[in-house]
């Protein structure tokens, strides 16, 4: 039995996951929490948010996120992969900034619309 704090939403339910019993989850107040409890102990994932350099916009950084959650163990490497990415304004929310991050099939996408100034 492992105790976890659910991170799906700000409520932060305290979950108990029974590894010996098919990773049965108790303590969650929604189905997403139940799914999280099982996944956290079998194949934990995270959405990664970071920034890339942008030219010609109001600020020098463009915020990005992974379009889906990726393996938790790859988070640091995924952020490092953005280091040399340089984009030019204009950019729209949802634009793909880096495709197929570390071969995960997930893209980094822009989370802000930044016009050219």
């Amino acid at each position: 039995m492992t105790e976890l704090t659910c991170i799906v939403c700000p409520k932060g339910c305290r979950l108990k996951v029974d590894e010996e019993n098919g990773f049965a989850v108790t303590g969650a107040s929604c189905p997403r929490g139940t799914a999280y409890g099982k996944k956290e102990l079998t194949a934990p994932t995270r959405t990664v948010t970071s920034t890339v350099a942008i030219e010609g916009a109001l600020h020098s950084r463009l915020p990005v996120k992974t379009s889906q959650e990726i393996d938790r163990a790859l988070v640091k490497e995924a952020v490092a992969a953005l280091k040399n990415v340089q984009v030019k304004a204009p950019v729209s929310t949802g634009d793909v900034i880096l495709e197929n991050v570390l071969g995960t099939g997930t893209d980094f996408i822009a989370t802000k619309t930044m016009g050219r100034i």
Partner: peptide
């Protein structure tokens, strides 16, 4: 605009957004 992490909007938009997306 500076809160680039996600976790915003679950109540209001029923989906998980980053700060700039929520503002957007």
């Amino acid at each position: 605009n500076q809160c680039i992490h996600n976790g915003f909007g679950l109540h209001y938009f029923k989906e998980e957004l980053t700060g700039p997306e929520y503002a957007g």
